[in-house]
């Protein structure tokens, strides 16, 4: 199982929720994960019902078996200042740079620099070790930009190498790229069983592959349970309205005659939706990637619901393989052997 798990997806598919559930799933049995966000939305804090995250790693949840999820909202500006401090001991000059708009320039205007800083910080956390030489985090999970921008976001090398051909930013881009294109990384795409998100997922996978970025799973989110055998229902209910009306009355429903038509229509709509979902599922199956599914949490995602989703991930084998991977943590040996195919071809 790759140690850097990047979660992307079309807007509205719930990628922050999926990233959080994944971070919990991977943190079980005493492991430690870091969940990072890069878009300044404080989505993680909202999800875990905590205060806004500072630019500082802090524990945000405890997983079953004593594991810990830590969280960090990466801020490009702070990352740059840290970085300058680390390499140049800038001190107060950093503040002066900020006043002039230089930091703003470097983090928001200069193409790609912002992305290098954000992915760079995450990669630093992936590779960070403690004094005993063990990885500080077993996994780093990133709530990444949406599918439409993910390839460009991760493919910092292309963006930056052409511009900054030498210097630390260039070197940083190279180092980040080495991690991102290795089996240490897996990019997961979150989708719904609807046409547009599925199409966007397929396009996103093609783009990621073209850029040689390792694609992980497709996570189908907000899957609604099928309450009925919809085929049987659709075909049967149409012609049996009188019977249904009688049965409704028998079951204690008043005014059943007027209810039959809307009830049957609802069943037809449901059947149509299920049919469309089936088509989309076939498209997803054709992508040749492992799938995972998470159910719709209709009451809204609470921290308790996140635990349920994490449990669902574990039941589908996400994070199972990690048990032995975590055992190898000291020294950080080659993890490919135990990764078990989570990293796509």
């Amino acid at each position: 199982m790759s140690r850097f798990q990047v979660v992307s997806g079309k807007g509205g598919t719930g990628k922050t929720t999926v990233a959080a559930a994944l971070a919990l799933a991977l943190a079980t049995e005493g492991r430690r994960t870091l969940l990072v966000e890069v878009e300044g939305r404080q989505g993680i804090a909202q999800l875990f019902e905590s205060d806004a995250l500072p630019y500082e790693e802090r524990r945000i949840a405890v997983a079953p078996g004593g594991g810990e999820v830590h969280a960090l909202a990466i801020d490009a500006e702070r990352a740059l200042l840290d970085y300058l401090q680390m390499f140049y001991k800038l001190g107060s000059a950093g503040r002066a740079l900020k006043k002039l708009g230089a930091i703003d320039f470097a983090t928001t205007i200069a193409p790609g620099v912002r992305d290098v800083l954000l992915t760079g910080k995450a990669c630093e956390a992936v590779r960070r070790k403690d004094k005993q030489g063990r990885f500080v985090y077993d996994y780093v999970i990133m709530d990444a930009p949406p599918t439409g921008r993910i390839t460009r976001f991760l493919n910092v090398n292309d963006e930056v190498a052409g511009l900054a051909r030498i210097g630390p930013i260039h070197n940083q881009a190279q180092a980040v790229m080495r991690v991102l294109k290795s089996p240490e990384t897996a990019v997961h795409l979150v989708t719904l069983l609807e046409e547009m998100p599925v199409q966007e997922t397929a396009d996103g996978i093609a783009e990621l592959r073209a850029a040689e970025l390792p694609v992980g799973r497709v996570v189908v989110n907000m899957v609604r349970p099928h309450l009925l055998d919809e085929d049987a229902l659709r075909t049967a209910s149409g012609g049996r309205r009188k019977e249904i009306a009688k049965t409704l009355t028998r079951a204690g429903v008043k005014g059943s005659a007027a209810l039959v038509r809307p009830l049957v229509e609802q069943a037809a709509e449901h059947a149509q939706r299920v049919g469309l979902e089936r088509e989309q599922r076939a498209v997803l199956a054709g992508l040749g990637l492992p799938l995972a599914e998470l159910p719709l949490i209709s009451e809204g995602v609470t921290p308790a619901a996140l635990n349920e989703l994490a449990e669902e991930f574990r039941k589908q084998g996400v994070g199972d393989e990690s048990a032995d991977a975590a055992g190898q943590t000291p020294g950080g040996g080659n993890r490919r052997g135990s990764a078990g195919g989570v990293v796509g071809s």
Binding site: L227, L228, D229, L233, I244, T247, A251, L263
Partner: peptide, 18 residues
């Protein structure tokens, strides 16, 4: 398809869906 779906099953299904 409908033959062995009793009307009770059918109606219960419609109600759950509703």
């Amino acid at each position: 398809t409908s033959a062995d779906v009793s009307v009770e099953q059918l109606t219960a299904g419609l109600l759950r869906l509703h």
